[in-house]
Computed example of a mutant assay.
Amino acid sequence: MISQLPLDEQLDALRDALSRNEVLTEVLSRSASLDLPGWYLTAGCLFQTVWNTVTDRAPGEGIKDYDLFYFDATDLSWEAEDAVIQSAKQVFADVPAEVEIRNEARVHLWYEEKFGTPCPAYMSTEDAIDSFAATTCCLGVRLEQPGDRWRVYAPHGLSDVFNLVVRPNPVLAPRHVYEAKASRWRRHWPELTVLPWPTAATPT
């Protein structure tokens, strides 16, 4: 079982699984060319590729989009973020998937209006990844020089990802966000074990 392997071997297994998704590896490579500060490819495109690999599905099956996060606190205007988005559209124009780009330094400016919960300003992209609704989602990968070395950020480890366990992370996202996401995922991957939201948890 992969989750029982030493961490370095789990990382090798993660890279092997993600490398089977040709769209993901192409997005990863092109993302590196953008040279965005503190960037990571993150969220569903990663853990869902692993789920597909573990359950013998096509590597890209059920993946809605590819989330590319970066962190630039030097300009918090929408215009600056949109300039990055528009420039990146040219880079990803012929990639057969939607690449969604977000400056995580700006999230606190719009999060409450969208989700009904205040969001403190993030200090880094890693800080943003830490706040995902499920710990299983807290995963980021980027390429670094020299040699396109893979940098993996996985604050909760990889065991749940490989074991198809969805575990709540009640630090920011409200319960209904977690439950809606988990329900959607389980419709596509019925093999998932979805753990309940802790009744005493209150997002802070």
Rank of each mutant, 00 (worst) to 15 (best):
F69D: 02
E191I: 12
N169W: 00
K64T: 13
E126R: 14
I129G: 00
S159L: 07
R57F: 05
T55P: 03
K181Q: 10
V84P: 02
W189T: 06
R142S: 04
Y70R: 00
G157K: 03
F162I: 06
P168A: 05
E104G: 01
T74V: 11
W185E: 00
H176I: 04
A121G: 15
A128N: 05
D82Q: 13
L143G: 03
R102F: 03
V194Q: 05
K89M: 14
P146R: 11
R175N: 12
T136K: 02
E179M: 06
H156M: 09
H156A: 04
A128H: 01
R102C: 14
E104S: 08
N103C: 06
V99K: 00
W150H: 08
E98L: 15
E113F: 11
P196V: 08
F71L: 06
R142Y: 01
D82P: 07
Y122A: 07
S77M: 08
R151S: 14
C119H: 01
Y178G: 01
V141M: 10
I63F: 06
V161C: 09
R106K: 11
T55H: 07
A73S: 13
V166S: 00
D130L: 13
R106M: 05
L158Q: 00
E79A: 14
W185Q: 02
T193S: 13
Y122R: 06
A128T: 04
A88V: 07
C137W: 01
E126D: 10
T74W: 09
Q90H: 15
T125W: 04
M123P: 05
Y111F: 15
Y178K: 03
P118S: 11
P196C: 08
V152N: 01
V161D: 02
A80M: 11
K64A: 14
D72G: 02
P96G: 07
G140R: 00
P170Q: 08
Y70F: 15
D67C: 12
P96Y: 09
A128P: 00
G60W: 09
P198W: 09
V165R: 13
S77P: 01
E112S: 13
M123F: 11
I101A: 02
D67Y: 03
D56P: 03
P118I: 07
K114Q: 15
E100Y: 07
F69W: 09
V141H: 02
I63L: 09
W185M: 09
A133C: 15
D67L: 05
A121L: 08
Y122I: 03
N169S: 09
S87R: 14
L76E: 10
Y153E: 06
R151F: 10
A73F: 02
A121S: 14
E113V: 11
F92K: 01
S124C: 12
Y122E: 11
S77K: 06
D75P: 04
L195H: 14
R175C: 04
A73L: 10
D65Q: 13
E126I: 06
A133P: 04
T55F: 02
T74K: 13
D56G: 06
E191G: 10
D67R: 04
P120V: 09
L164P: 00
T135C: 05
S159C: 11
D67E: 14
S124E: 05
E144Q: 14
V161M: 08
P174L: 08
R186F: 03
W185S: 00
D75M: 08
E61Y: 13
P96L: 12
A121V: 08
P146T: 08
I85A: 10
G116C: 11
K64C: 11
E98V: 14
H176P: 00
R175V: 07
